[in-house]
């Protein structure tokens, strides 16, 4: 069910500003791919182009191709709304809808995309998604309470549950742990490890240890100087990137000799 992503010569622009230049890579299905790099190197921007979320910013555009199992996301007959149903996203800060209960939050995406859901299907999907996000046991008794009443880590897992409830092919995570404490971070990392068996997971992280812990492959983004577009410097198995990188810049960044 999870799918392979092929990126070919992707350039990203914000208006006249060239944000990311010439990225090509292949992301394998049922794997965790991590992007690391200094702030402003375009890794989050690049992540957003994988479900066309960058289009939320006026003036953003891309050149090149992103193929999911051979289908170009930027092809003529593709609607961003449909892309986003297939490529889910989890954000830097947990963002459950404050006016919805936990259950409604999980079902939010399903309700958008379904013309009709029976209540038994709703219950089933809720439980399945919450179990999938390792949250079921903690919230099963208070599904009707507001999602904003949960702890930060629980909220983030709620957001993951919401993302997987619509059964996407790919899950993108944009620094999902940057606003969480270490214990919640660990819970999320465990979860990412579990998700791998069903989904293609792509994660952007500031934390190199995290990349090393959770990912199978790692991409290192960098920019030559401020004002220059970000670039994918190196993309390889996590093992190789952390132990035996081929690029000097990668090695410097990994070993903390950066900047």
């Amino acid at each position: 069910m999870s799918k392979r992503i092929d990126v070919k010569d992707l350039d990203i622009y914000y208006g006249d500003f060239h944000a990311v230049k010439g990225v090509s890579m292949t992301i394998e299905p049922r794997s965790v791919t991590a992007f690391i790099g200094p702030s402003g190197c375009g890794k989050s921007t690049f992540l957003r182009t994988l479900n066309r979320m960058h289009e939320v910013i006026p003036g953003a555009r891309v050149e090149g191709e992103v193929l999911i199992d051979g289908q170009n996301l930027y092809g003529k007959g593709v609607d961003p709304v449909d892309v986003r149903r297939q490529v889910g996203m989890v954000f830097q800060r947990p963002n459950p809808f404050p006016t919805m209960s936990i259950k409604e939050n999980v079902l939010a995406g399903v309700r958008l995309n379904a013309r009709r859901i029976s209540s038994s299907a709703a219950d089933e999907l809720t439980e399945r998604a919450l179990r999938g996000a390792n949250l079921w046991n903690e919230v099963k008794d208070r599904l009707d309470k507001p999602g904003s009443g949960l702890s930060g880590g629980q909220q983030q897992r709620l957001c993951i549950a919401r993302a997987i409830a619509i059964q996407p092919e790919v899950i993108l995570m944009d620094e999902p742990c940057s606003a969480l404490d270490p214990i919640s971070t660990l819970a999320i990392e465990d979860l990412i490890n579990d998700l791998k068996s069903d989904y293609t997971v792509v994660i952007v992280t500031h934390n190199m240890q995290q990349a090393a812990r959770v990912s199978d492959k790692t991409g290192f983004f960098n920019l030559k100087a401020t004002g220059q577009p970000g670039q994918l410097v190196e993309f390889d198995t996590t093992q190789t990137i952390f132990n035996n990188p081929s690029q000097k810049a990668t090695e410097d960044y990994i070993s903390g000799r950066f900047g």
Binding site: M1, D79, N113, R115, A121, D198
Partner: peptide, 21 residues
């Protein structure tokens, strides 16, 4: 418990797809 399946395969769910316009 986590059965991976497509959303449209879940019984009781009728999907509503969006075509580009």
């Amino acid at each position: 418990d986590v059965q991976r399946s497509r959303l449209e395969d879940v019984e009781g769910v009728v999907l509503s797809r969006v075509r580009p316009t």
